[in-house]
Computed example of a mutant assay.
Amino acid sequence: MTKKSTNTLWHHATITRADREALHKHKSVIIWFTGLSGSGKSTLAHAVEEYLHKVGISTIVLDGDNVRHGLCGDLDFSDSDRIENIRRVSELAKLMIEAGVITLAAFISPFKADRDDARKRVPHGDFLEIYCQCPIETCEQRDVKGLYKKARAGKIPFFTGIGSPYETPGMPELVVNTHELTLEESVKKVLNLLMQRGVIKDIVC
């Protein structure tokens, strides 16, 4: 269980999230990309960010590998540390949408309870779960980082899909079949979701 800080008092800011969203001229939201390693989460998140940036929308990508070089550099890949990893990232993402920024989080996040917990940390509608669906066979064929090969050889314990389970989302806001769609087609599906939810205005995509 996470320890609670003591002797602290919540400080209410004079500038609100609504003020920051007004400054950015768009709403802020967490777009949470989940899926197996090699399913295309980071690739899709960065491609969506690139498009949004070009049309003047404030964004940030929180990438699973990158945060483990700093914020979560003290964590391994045991179940307990995976849970803590997602807890920290969830809190960071929450701060980012308070800043009025569209936050794209790309994490395997294998456990449904952790993703549900991340969703509960923000107001209803502020968490959009996108399941990058891709068969493990295809992910292994891609194996850009060579991780599946190492996991099969027993060199990486607790590897999701091999030595540790991945719990498929039950009701994500969007399922993107990354093994069937092109990157451009996948980006369009995400952008269409954002327009349908009123996060961004209609844009050509």
Score class of each variant (00 low, 15 high):
Lys41Leu: 10
Ser42Glu: 07
Ser42Lys: 07
Thr43Asp: 12
His46Asn: 15
Ala47Phe: 11
Ala47Trp: 11
Val48Cys: 13
Glu50Phe: 08
Lys54Asn: 15
Val55Lys: 12
Val55Phe: 06
Gly56His: 07
Gly56Arg: 09
Ser58Pro: 10
Ile60Tyr: 14
Leu62His: 00
Gly64Tyr: 06
Asn66Val: 08
Val67Glu: 09
His69Thr: 14
His69Asp: 11
His69Ser: 12
Gly70Asn: 15
Leu71Glu: 08
Leu71Phe: 09
Gly73Glu: 15
Gly73Cys: 13
Asp74Met: 05
Leu75Ser: 04
Asp76Glu: 13
Phe77Tyr: 15
Ser80Trp: 02
Arg82Trp: 03
Ile86Asp: 00
Arg88Pro: 03
Glu91Asn: 12
Ala93Phe: 03
Lys94Glu: 15
Ile97Pro: 03
Ala99His: 06
Val101Ser: 00
Thr103Gln: 01
Leu104Asn: 04
Ala105Pro: 00
Ile108Pro: 01
Ile108His: 03
Ser109Trp: 00
Arg115His: 03
Asp116Ile: 10
Asp117Gly: 04
Arg119Asp: 01
Arg119His: 04
His124Leu: 13
Gly125Asp: 10
Asp126Ile: 00
Phe127Leu: 02
Glu129Ala: 08
Ile130Cys: 06
Tyr131Phe: 15
Pro135Trp: 05
Pro135Asn: 07
Thr138Arg: 13
Thr138Phe: 12
Cys139Ala: 09
Cys139Tyr: 06
Glu140Gly: 01
Gln141Gly: 13
Gln141Trp: 07
Arg142Gly: 02
Asp143Arg: 05
